[in-house]
């Protein structure tokens, strides 16, 4: 039934690239205007969720497999923690960005960029994973027997 809604299909095809681009803009422009990793991650996930809703979750899984979203989920947190460890190895305190580059201000800039990117990846991965998990339940439908308590 979902495949007959041609207006939705065309409009969402037009919308998804700008949504992804906007997510990247929000991610990397968050230093200057409103935005940052949390919002960018959510917007990024929204693009995939919209795609999954319109074209079916199986198609969305082919575009971005569940394993990829789970990897994103963990890599983001690792990137965040890794930035902290990196500053430790350079002789500073945990998450002290001043040492990451030659000057403190460049270091702060790099540190914030990495950390925000980590946040964005984790949030995008988490939201897409959660959506896939919920959608996988409906694929089963009602024909599967209920588990015993």
């Amino acid at each position: 039934m979902m495949h007959q809604k041609s207006v939705l299909r065309v409009v969402s095809k037009l919308l998804i690239p700008p949504i992804l681009l906007f997510a990247l803009y929000v991610q990397f422009h968050g230093d200057f205007g409103p935005g940052g990793g949390f919002q960018a991650g959510v917007i990024f996930a929204t693009a995939f969720i919209l795609y999954g809703l319109i074209f079916g979750v199986a198609t969305a899984r082919r575009v971005i497999p569940a394993a990829a979203t789970r990897t994103m989920l963990s890599l983001g947190l690792l990137l965040y923690g890794g930035t902290g460890i990196w500053s430790l190895l350079l002789g500073g305190e945990f998450l002290d960005y001043n040492l990451l580059a030659s000057t403190p201000s460049a270091g702060q800039h790099l540190g914030i960029l990495l950390v925000e990117f980590g946040v964005g990846m984790t949030v995008a991965g988490a939201m897409t994973t959660i959506f896939y998990t919920f959608a996988a339940q409906t694929l089963g439908g009602d024909d599967t027997p209920k588990e015993e308590v």
Partner: peptide, 13 residues
């Protein structure tokens, strides 16, 4: 807010 939606998802699960 973001943590809130993640925990809401957990509750819905």
């Amino acid at each position: 807010i973001v943590v809130g939606v993640a925990t809401t998802a957990l509750a819905l699960a």
